[in-house]
Write a protein that binds this DNA or RNA. Structure first.
Lengths: 139, 139
DNA sequence: TTCCTTGCAAATCGTTTGCATAATG
DNA sequence: CATTATGCAAACGATTTGCAAGGAA
């Protein structure tokens, strides 16, 4: 399993991630950590994020929009992807893993888990009268 | 929106997709359609799959494993990704969009929908006696 | 004739990796 | 000293796109 050695870079990454609640992407993490650790490389950021995620110390989110996001909050909770600004926010919702049983009912195999995320509009985008979001999400 | 014109390639793609129940990837669709349409290009396959999906004639699935899959069956239903063979199969399960209401309850924004998929082991992989799955999931 | 489509290839984009060197235990 | 971690840049894999030529209405 290769004993893990301590590294200044990994610490910076995890430390930074713990200060954020907005599920930043690897690139955003890279840009920010870079301010205190000017020599860190994107590869190192990716390597450590992957390592931490596999170790279960952080979680990796895939909201189907092409980028992976990371979350230092590993407690079970759900997320919502704002279709207007692209941000990902936490969603307070009781765990409904009970669907697994229902899913297993008519399934001739083994259902181990599920992935669920919501999409819609975040608080800010709902509140603010859309000024000119014409170029907000044209794709 | 640009009036859509008929195209032999698009027909082949949709026709082929309708014969499959295994949610093929763009590349698999390309390889197969190519047998009857030797000159079709991967770009055309992607362009049409995207066009058909946006038109709501087929659906595009993202199971978080890096590849998009396509399904000609647009009736609402769930999917399961087999962690052993990587296949995606349909899952008979009553729609539980009711979670949307629960999700909206404590959310200060708008919840428009949700994406859910299951992971586990498909029928075949569950049945077949695992020969040597020692190296099945090391990481 | 208009303009949607296609084939081809080059371009994107996010993420991973090989390698020689630096840092850690 | 034995290893793991890093920086850099090249490599990747899936998907998109620019462009000139082809096909449908």
């Amino acid at each position: 399993m290769a004993a893990r050695k301590h590294s200044r870079q990994r610490d910076s990454i995890k430390e930074f991630l713990m200060t954020r609640k907005d599920h930043p992407t690897a690139d955003i993490i890279y840009t920010n950590v870079r301010q205190r650790n000017p020599n860190i490389s994107l590869g190192t950021v990716y390597r450590n994020l992957t390592l931490l995620a596999k170790a279960g110390e952080i979680s990796r989110l895939n909201m189907g929009d092409g980028v992976d996001r990371f979350d230092a909050d590993i407690s079970p909770h759900y997320h919502l992807l704002c279709e207007k600004c692209g941000s990902v926010v936490d969603l307070e919702l009781e765990d409904f893993s009970s669907v697994l049983e229902k899913a297993a009912a008519h399934f001739d195999g083994h259902v181990a888990g599920h992935v669920t995320y919501f999409y819609g509009t975040c608080r800010r985008c709902t509140k603010s009268v859309p000024p000119d979001m014409s170029e907000t999400s044209d794709t």
